[in-house]
Simulated assay, not measured.
Amino acid sequence: MTDHELDVRPLPGPGKHPTIFQAYDALGVGESIAVVNDHDPRHLRDEFEVEHPGGYAWEYLARERGAYRIRITKLAATPLPRVLADAAAVSASSGDATGAVWKLQMRERDLDSNIIALPPGAAIGAHTGPDVDVLIYVLAGSGQLGTELDAQPVALRGGSLIWLPRRSRRRFTAGPDGLRYLTVHQRRRALTLTTAPA
């Protein structure tokens, strides 16, 4: 089958990768694009490993200065299911890190997910959650989830599965062993936190 040729050399840098992925997404299974670029697109291949590991083939056709030519073949109709990370290993290796120590990287997705790490005694202050429901799974450690009713904090420990309704007030405080948890929620442009009213 004849490759669809895509010469991205005239394009500005930030437009190259999106153009290539758009052309790749339009391919049928077994079809290929021959990408022509002015340098070795190693970073593009890194992105393909994030988006389509095992579902594409990469072949250098030419490695000439100013004219690299790569055949990218679509092997699967959609990205393949796969293991993204060992959550226990990420949690264990995060040490005294604070904040997101892992997150989803794929550009085309409906979900967002993070592993959040809090060292012993650390806290995420009171805030009103975003306009999405969030599931939290506690991986390790312990702590408390403060809610709108201050007298009724929710105990957090390994294995706890917690639902945070959209726009609910919450705050997190890590216990003596710290707190590590996985969040899963619908993707949105930016998951921002706002200060809760007094």
Rank of each mutant, 00 (worst) to 15 (best):
D40N: 15
V8D: 05
I116C: 00
G99L: 00
R109G: 08
A100H: 04
E51Q: 15
A190R: 15
D177P: 03
G30R: 04
W58I: 00
R169Y: 02
G121H: 03
Y60P: 03
E5G: 03
V132W: 05
G175L: 06
I136T: 11
P41V: 10
E64L: 13
E59S: 06
D112H: 12
L179V: 03
A151C: 07
A92W: 12
I70F: 07
E31H: 05
A23I: 08
G15I: 00
A34W: 06
G178K: 03
A77T: 06
D133Y: 12
L111P: 04
G55C: 12
A196F: 01
V134L: 11
I33L: 11
F48K: 00
E5R: 15
F21C: 10
A77Q: 09
L84I: 09
V90C: 13
V184I: 14
S142C: 07
D96S: 13
T173S: 12
D133M: 12
V29Q: 00
D177Q: 15
V132E: 07
D40C: 12
L179K: 07
A92M: 12
P197Q: 08
Q105L: 15
D3K: 11
R63E: 14
K16E: 08
T19K: 11
A89F: 01
I72F: 06
T195M: 11
Q144S: 11
H17V: 14
E108R: 14
I115L: 14
W58P: 00
G178Y: 04
R71E: 01
A122W: 05
D96N: 14
Q186I: 09
G129P: 10
S32F: 00
R65F: 05
R45L: 08
A100C: 03
H43F: 11
L118F: 03
A151H: 13
R167W: 06
E64K: 13
G66W: 03
V101F: 00
Y56W: 01
A117R: 04
A123Q: 09
Y56D: 02
L84M: 14
R65L: 13
L27H: 00
L139D: 14
